[in-house]
Amino acid sequence: MMMNLFSSFDPSSNLNLSLNWMSTLLGLSIIPPMFWVIPARLNFLWMKILNTLHKEFKMLLSNKSQGSSLIFISLFSIILFNNFLGLFPYIFTSTSHMTMTLSLALPLWLSFMIFGWFNNTIHMLAHLVPQGTPSILMPFMVCIETISNVIRPGTLAIRLSANMIAGHLLMTLLGNTGSMLSIIMINFLIITQILLLTLETAVSMIQAYVFAILSTLYSSEVN
């Protein structure tokens, strides 16, 4: 029985070192063999996914910045690896922490804003007032658009971490009730946990895709 419900998200370890953050680098130990081992079906599947993402991101980006789709594919891969690794027992989920998600979202958003305001100043100013806005509402629309633009990195980071925390907490809560249930109810609990794990697997993929696609949309707005 855990002393604290949120102890599974604690990055500290018994050695008083944050060794759990090393789970973020576990994906790198899987990638190198793809370059020298004979490609298997899993490798072909992964390359197919990357090619599909590249084509989709390329449609959203302008002709001048189509090469930057590789950045968003790498972002998708990093988040997907960490989301999947967090589904295994006793592996720290780094994407459930704002430290990880905000450090991915904030630099991207800042680079988009700096690039847009320095290179396309008129275009960025035009975005603050939607087309067809009445003159009397223009000051309010500028405030609303500015606020919605500023909170973008926060919404990206919170969306990812909140989804990871919610699923893990639900599975932890159900798992802690196992010792108090009868044999019949334990069978139902196991089936429920398997269904929840399947749902969490889908959420892991969806959240990685949502983070990458929204970052791509924010990038396309500054060009």
Rank of each mutant, 00 (worst) to 15 (best):
M2I: 07
M3L: 06
M3C: 14
N4F: 05
F9L: 15
D10F: 08
S12E: 15
S13M: 06
N16H: 12
L17R: 06
S18K: 13
L19F: 07
N20D: 09
L28Y: 05
S29Y: 12
I30R: 14
P33E: 05
M34T: 13
F35V: 09
W36Q: 07
V37W: 12
I38Y: 12
R41V: 12
F44Q: 08
L45R: 03
L53Q: 13
H54V: 01
K55E: 08
K55P: 00
K58E: 12
M59S: 15
M59N: 14
N63A: 15
G67Y: 04
S68T: 14
S69E: 09
F72H: 13
S74G: 02
L75R: 01
F76W: 05
S77N: 02
S77E: 10
I78K: 03
I79P: 00
L80I: 01
L80D: 07
N82P: 01
N82V: 04
N83R: 08
L85V: 09
G86D: 11
F88Q: 06
Y90F: 14
I91A: 08
T95D: 11
S96N: 13
H97K: 03
M100K: 01
L102K: 02
S103P: 04
L104W: 03
W109C: 08
F118P: 01
N119A: 10
N119C: 05
N120F: 07
I122Y: 05
I122G: 12
H123W: 02
H123N: 11
M124Q: 12
M124C: 02
A126T: 03
A126M: 12
L128F: 09
V129C: 00
G132S: 00
S135I: 04
I136Y: 15
M141Q: 13
C143E: 04
E145S: 15
E145N: 11
I147Y: 10
S148N: 14
I151F: 08
I158Y: 05
M164K: 07
M164L: 08
I165H: 00
I165D: 03
H168M: 06
L170D: 04
M171F: 01
L173D: 13
L174K: 02
G175F: 06
G175R: 02
N176Y: 09
T177G: 11
S179E: 10
M180A: 15
M180Y: 12
I183H: 13
I184A: 14
I186Q: 03
L189E: 03
I190E: 10
I190Y: 06
Q193D: 00
L197S: 11
T198Y: 15
T201D: 05
A202D: 06
S204V: 06
S204Y: 01
S204M: 04
Q207W: 07
Y209N: 05
F211S: 01
F211K: 01
L214C: 10
L214M: 09
L214G: 14
S215K: 00
T216K: 03
T216G: 07
S220Y: 14
